[in-house]
Amino acid sequence: MFQVWQKFYASSDNAKAYILLSPALILVILGMAVPVFAMFAMSFTTQAGFEIDYSPTFDRYREFLDTGTRTGTILTTLLSRSITISFLVTFFTILTTYPVAYYVAFYVKKNKILWIILMTIPFWTSYLLRVFAWKLILGNSGVINASLISVGLTDEPLSYLMYSQLSVVITLCHAWSAFALLPLFVSLDKIDHSLIEASRDLGCSKFETFIRVTFPLSLPGVIGAILIIFIPTVGDFVTPALVGGTEGRMLSNMIQAYFGRVNNFSLGAASAVIMLFSVIVVTIIVNFVTKRLTQRL
């Protein structure tokens, strides 16, 4: 025992580092790990009214996954919708942001940081208000519809703009753009220009150079952006609640209902666990696929 301690102290960098890290780690353990575990435990209980029966059961998971019942149908639909919407948001956010990151990394010569700061400032203003702003734009009497009508392009407002999956996707793309911009910019900015020169000198066209040199080298940024956008948006609550309507409702809105109005903590906990599980699975898949892809390129 003593020898173990001695060894630990001999490599005292370990000890010193963990002493400094301990407050943050304790917070993560007590504030996140333990509560998530408690929620996991809660998902095996049964709640009737205000009474919670703590005898363990898998019934909540059956309730969630049984598509024969109304609850099961709703919950599984919302889960797959949440994942689809997040996937679309991730894809379009990266697609629209990539050219901008590319421009700043390669074409801007002075004050790159100022450009990046300007593009991240909207991200710091209240999430709630940014989402709400889209209601003013996409709504039936919102900016887009009002201008379309006044120009005479349409007689009645385009109702699919609001309270639909489309409105949720647009709003989320706007809200999360900064999270795509930063990793993309950092990875593009690191690229050694001489590699691009070499590819051009060896006869590749601009397009070929991009596909075969620039893009593969920026993949770490793309992967970073995928994970940093996909994971949080699966659990987004505000956007579907404000601009989603019934059409664009997501799993988090149901979880919130279970912990509020419906008052079924057990089923709410099971739903949250399933959401967390799906997120972890997707993360593993993304990691696996991108590793394969980068090996090929």
């Binding site: 504030g31 996140m32 509560p35 998530v36 408690a38 929620m39 809660m42 994971i231 949080p232 699966v234 659990g235 987004d236 609550f237 988090s252 979880i255 919130q256 912990f259 903590f265 709410g268 906990a269 949250a272 959401m275 967390l276 997120v279």
Partner: peptide
């Protein structure tokens, strides 16, 4: 991780 997971587990 999704914020709602943090919120809900703290609540539980």
């Amino acid at each position: 991780i999704p914020e709602i997971i943090l919120a809900v587990s703290l609540l539980v």
